[in-house]
């Protein structure tokens, strides 16, 4: 299911003296089955964008295509539930959405809203609690008795239980410790690979974008200013700086090494493993030449 934004603009408090425009003619397509990262400085419009992916916001002008559904400015949109079932959003600090008496009920909330049968919803919950790395006992507990990290996982299971085709992640690891961060990001990557989920990661973290995304869209002052594969995007430090962003640490380190070697490596490396291998190869070649 592709998501296509065409000339999308959005203004908060439209028609009052407090009107504030957040998006200006945003235009891009997220092809089905890809892993996209949307990066931008705070206030670049990325959180406004993400609410358009499942019609929580309707554009002020322009249109959003979600699969074969069109949400356009000025037109009344009916039956948005179908859209919302297909596009799941894990908001920042998703544990703030928990409300049920038990973890089980909370995970079932989404599916039941979308008309899934009770037994099926329960089955999903039991599978998912395992998938997000929690023991089955938590199902009967109150979500408010869990630790922050566990609550986060329950909330994520609650979104996955809707079985969306597209999953939108808004800073899903904020506030977690390093182990928690890695576990959550790896889990989403695995889901993306195994189930062919279209994944949209909205983040500040260049490191996560570099490690996981197929393609990166950069937002700046309410516009999409740059799009491309990570190794292309991160090659151009100057352009990134002009959007108040910095390339990930790994790329900055590569630049230092290139200065040292006085020549560029053959490619922009995105993971530590890649960079180590590349430096080693370069050094071997150098030695062979001597």
């Amino acid at each position: 299911m592709d998501i296509k934004l065409q000339q999308v603009s959005y203004a908060y408090a439209q028609g009052t003296p407090f009107e504030k425009r957040a998006l200006f003619d945003v235009d891009f397509t997220i092809p089905s089955g890809t892993y996209q990262a949307i990066i931008g400085h705070t206030g670049s419009g990325k959180s406004t964008i993400l609410q358009h992916f499942n019609a929580l916001l309707k554009p002020t002008t322009g249109e959003v295509h979600i699969g074969n559904r069109i949400v356009a400015a000025g037109k009344k949109a009916r039956d948005l539930k179908a859209v919302r079932q297909k596009v799941g959003i894990v908001f920042q600090f998703p544990e703030h959405q928990l409300f049920e008496e038990t973890v089980l009920k909370d995970i079932m909330f989404g599916p039941l809203n979308f008309g899934v049968a009770v037994q099926e919803a329960e089955l999903r919950a039991r599978k998912l609690v395992n998938l997000v790395g929690l023991p089955a006992e938590v199902l009967e507990k109150s979500p408010f008795d869990l630790s922050g990290g566990q609550m986060r996982r329950v909330a994520i299971a609650g979104v996955l239980a809707m079985e969306p085709e597209v999953i939108v992640l808004d800073e899903p690891t904020a506030g977690l410790d390093p182990r928690g961060q890695k576990e959550i990001m790896d889990m989403f990557y695995e889901l993306h690979k195994k189930r062919g989920l279209t994944t949209i990661l909205v983040t500040h973290s260049m490191e996560d974008a570099a490690r996981y995304a197929d393609n990166i869209i950069i937002m700046h002052e309410g516009k999409n200013v740059l799009s491309g594969a990570p190794h292309e995007i991160f090659r151009d430090t100057e352009t990134l700086n002009s959007f108040r962003l910095e390339p990930p640490r790994i790329v900055r380190f590569q630049q230092k090494v290139e200065q040292l070697m006085n020549k560029p490596l053959s490619k922009v490396c995105l993971t530590e493993e890649e960079l180590a291998a590349e430096i080693a190869r370069e050094l071997r070649e150098e030695r062979a030449e001597q």
Binding site: R84, H96, Q97, F109, G110, G158
Partner: peptide
């Protein structure tokens, strides 16, 4: 802000 966020999160989970 908080109300708005929670409302959106529940709407995204199909609450109407």
């Amino acid at each position: 802000d908080e109300t708005d966020k929670i409302m959106k999160a529940q709407m995204a989970r199909g609450s109407d």
